[in-house]
Design a protein around this nucleic acid. Structure first.
Length: 412
RNA sequence: GCGGGUGUAGCUCAGUUGGUUAGAGCGCGGGUUUGUGGUACCUGAGGUCGCCGGUUCGAAGCCGGUCACUCGCCCCA
């Protein structure tokens, strides 16, 4: 009989790791709240169509990475592989099309059936923001600024680079795609197997191939910048100007692309090289086509999503989990007096633990281990005096006082 | 999905060309101290050597499979 375990790529989160995750999430919530993005929560599973339509039937996420299942009413459901589709769906359902702009943030688990690696799990958490209803490039810059500020607050910015690119509008992108296909057709024999495959399905993706032979061909491939129409070009210039104004450093990476059809114009990625091939830590772009694909009106949108696990691996934190006070009974028969004291302390917001077992020496060792600041000792002498012994564990000083005074001292 | 690496106590790891009761440090429990900790000493618990099968008189060590983790690819956060 094999021991019960978690399924592949799905992990338990023990307190220390969860502490860091929560720190990342809280920093994100705080930052996005300051930017006036309101938190929403959407279901973890949806009708499969919600993801299939926007992502495209041929995308990897839908074809080989999905968790699709039928429920008892025979509805085809899917565990969400990303957040944007659901957020936009919720926005449409709530009729907020008539109340734009809307700024949302969300976080929670996503599911992708991929080969697990460090920083790549089958159940993982994303935090994301979406700005809906603004087509101005100001919104793109705002959203990037928010992401940048978030990473800054997390204190990881020095490990991270921002790359941006534009995909142009649908017209520019189509022209570019055709040019690409024409170009790569001439080099079929030098392309890798994967890239040949991409040539028919998603030629843009060839551009970010890591294959060395591919790279040689890509070097002289058509440049998206030359295929942008005037509007798209101006938009991109505005983005760059906006970032310059904010003193946000970035590099233009003309090979940065997006696989999904609903993306247009701005694409950006915050990446690190400290996580191997899972370097993308926060990424997003503009997705003006999405709401229409989901059956709504044409509503522009721009946003990003960040990988909590990946960021947690970058964050340098001391895990602070201090206990304010421990309660120690001289012997076991005094223990019953401790819970009522704990109750009063807890009501004052004081973090308390009762140490039940071991001799006094062991109990104090435990107090050290859980980083307690104070100890309250209760035994014969205390009962006689109707006072408690209060010990400051940093100075080692002890005194006999009552609970009210103790509370005052702990709270300063 | 494809290719490489790894898998021995809760954790980090030893384990000599296959040889008898598989070790250490840290951590954990008890004690030295029947009223006092951050040291020190004593002591205890804890492993079917990832799992299954094969080779062998004999396997933690060799072979095959499998599972998990990990690195690269694919893809992505």
């Amino acid at each position: 009989m094999e021991k019960l375990r978690t399924v592949r790529g799905v992990h338990d989160l023990l307190p220390e790791e969860l502490y860091i995750h929560n720190k990342v999430i809280n920093t994100a919530l705080e930052t996005s709240d300051n930017f006036n993005y309101s938190q929403i929560e959407i279901p973890i599973f949806e009708f499969a169509e919600v993801f299939k339509k926007p992502l495209g039937e041929s995308s990897d996420i839908v074809t080989k990475e999905n968790y699709i299942f039928k429920d008892r009413s025979n509805d085809e459901l899917m565990l969400r592989p990303e957040g944007t589709s659901g957020v936009v769906r919720a926005f449409l359902n709530a009729g907020l099309v008539h109340d734009i702009p809307q700024r949302f943030s969300y976080y929670g688990p996503m599911f992708r059936y991929e080969r697990p690696q460090k920083g790549r799990l089958r159940q993982f958490k994303q935090f994301g923001v979406e700005c809906l209803g603004l087509s101005s490039t100001m919104a793109d810059v705002e959203v990037i600024c928010l992401g940048n500020e978030f990473l800054n607050k997390l204190n990881v910015l020095e490990k991270i680079n921002l790359k941006i690119n534009t995909l142009g509008d649908f017209e520019s992108r189509n022209n570019f795609r055709n040019a690409l296909v024409n170009y790569f057709e001439d080099y079929r024999s030098s392309l890798s197997k994967e890239s040949l495959n991409r040539l028919s399905i998603n030629p843009l993706r060839i551009l970010d191939s890591k294959d060395e032979e591919d790279q040689k061909v890509i070097k002289n491939a058509p440049n998206i910048m030359e295929y942008l129409n005037v509007d798209s070009r101006i938009r991109f210039q505005n983005i760059c100007k906006g970032l310059d104004h904010l003193n946000i450093e970035y590099t233009i990476d003309k090979n940065l692309v997006r696989g999904l059809d609903y993306y247009c114009h701005t694409a950006f990625e915050f990446t690190t090289n400290e996580l191997g091939s899972q370097g993308t830590v926060l990424a997003g772009g503009r997705y003006d086509g999405l709401s229409k694909i989901l059956g709504g009106l044409d509503v522009p949108g721009v946003g990003w999503a960040a990988g909590i696990e990946r960021l947690a691996l970058l964050v340098d934190t001391e895990i602070v989990n201090k206990t304010d006070v421990v309660l120690i009974g001289q012997a076991e028969n005094f223990n019953y007096l401790l819970l009522p004291i704990m109750k009063k302390l807890v009501q004052q917001g004081i973090k308390t633990e009762i140490i039940y077992s071991g001799n006094l020496s062991k109990k104090f060792k435990r107090a050290n281990k859980i980083k307690a600041s104070y100890a309250i000792i209760l035994g014969e002498e205390e009962v006689d005096k109707k006072l408690l012994k209060f010990k400051d564990l940093t100075s080692g000083r002890e005194e006999f006082i009552d609970l009210k005074q103790i509370i005052k001292k702990i709270k300063n």
